[in-house]
Design a protein around this nucleic acid. Sequence first.
RNA 1: GGAGAUAUGGCACAAUCUGGUACUGCAACGGACUCGAAAUCCGUCGAGCCAAGUUUACUUGGUGUGCGGGUUCAAAUCCCGCUAUCUCCUCCA
Length: 438
Amino acid sequence: MLDIKYLRANPTEANQRLIDRGVEDGVLEKLLEDDSKRRDVIVRVEELKAKRNKVTEQIAASKRSGDVQSADQAIADMQKLGDEIKALDEKLNEIDNNVAKQIAVLPNLAHADVPIGVDDTFNVEQRKWEPENYNGRPQAFQEKPEWLKAHYEIGEDLGILDFERGAKVSGARFLYYVGAGARLERAVYNFMLDEHQKEGYTEILTPYLVTHESMYATGQYPKFEDDAYQTKGEPSLSLIPTAEVALVNWRRDEVIPEEQLPLKVTALSPAFRQEAGAAGKDTRGLIRLHQFNKVEMVKFTKAEQSYEELELMTKDAENILQKLELPYHVIALSTGDMGFGAAKTYDIEVWFPEQQRYREISSVSNDEDFQGRRGHIQYRDENGKLQFVHTLNGSGLAVGRTVAAILENYQNEDGSITIPKVLQPYFGSEKIDVNNAK
RNA sequence: GGAGAUAUGGCACAAUCUGGUACUGCAACGGACUCGAAAUCCGUCGAGCCAAGUUUACUUGGUGUGCGGGUUCAAAUCCCGCUAUCUCCUCCA
């Protein structure tokens, strides 16, 4: 949520920054008009309430002193005032809700660093990384050999990814991992969690169903309600679209002791997404599923340290790819390509040799105080004043996409898969063989 | 799922039956005593949120007794609904 005081004080600047984030011109103007109406009503109703409080005190005093007559007179006078207050309160309530609704759907403002642009063509590459030693693989398969297969073909040929039965049981965009496939997935997320723990993140296991209030605090609701799965009945719960929701809300409505900041947590969870609006995109393979595993990192930080921590968190995600020896690059997202709550985002994209292109495998964002404000997550600064924490979130990494990247980058001409060195202790062997993929 | 109990400042609690400035203690903060500290004494102390005014820190008003409603001139107190916690029963991994 944006700070209404900032919007009031800097309407022109705020309007331009909102336009950069894809908000229509005029939306802010309407909001500020209603906000001004709101304050007019507050002034009026508070005057009346102050009067009522005074008279009520007098009534109490009269009754104590036994002056029943003047008390009765005052009570009769106050009846009308009570009705007025009630009517104004109702009106104020209506305006309040109206203003709250308008501000709830405004995205976060972008940090000054962020490239301005309407879509992903304005993103800017920050750096590129390739392993020195490809374990005997042709370098990034930049000249694509004829035998090179897409990850889903390898997976199906080896019998370790079963998309067909996934579709039978749950529909499109679901799958079964079988044997070595399931084990590889487990090796990957165990490796990731261990790495993050070494960097000081506390491992958390979270609920996967959360209230609408939680979805509001992290910014999924009310604007993106169609993207989530919800349970029937009261209260309706939402399946988390990312562990970020469960991790950030962990400390909702709390004041975090300053000395605990930055507070770093990590969690493995399935992520459930309707993928509304992605029909026909990435229909094959592990790239875009309704349910996928992801290891997520979240940080709660003080305001002045959040950008430094954003760089560090990005490095923590990159560290995983470097140890897995997978080529990637880091890009800074433009104002038009960032998510709703982000003030600045780096995407990490990993090389898929069969597609001959980079695909997103991690997204690391600083939301500044956007979520802290929505979810009332605070800390006391050195002056003892309450401040909203800054929150950061990043995939570290999407597990399914990592498995896909390993299958494509580590495939051999005979159809077998070499297991990346760092995963071998987790996986239990060095290879997935063609004839023995269990 | 059924029954009962509980929810009040940072903490512990009183006021709830019988509506009328939310008690007290601890902690915290300021001061006195002291070379200094402890003890003692005096004083302050409802966090937060909203608004107005002076301008950066205050002042005033509103709100604030788990949450949401209702009754009333007035609600911690009466009425309705909800949530969480505890106990018992039931069920279960």
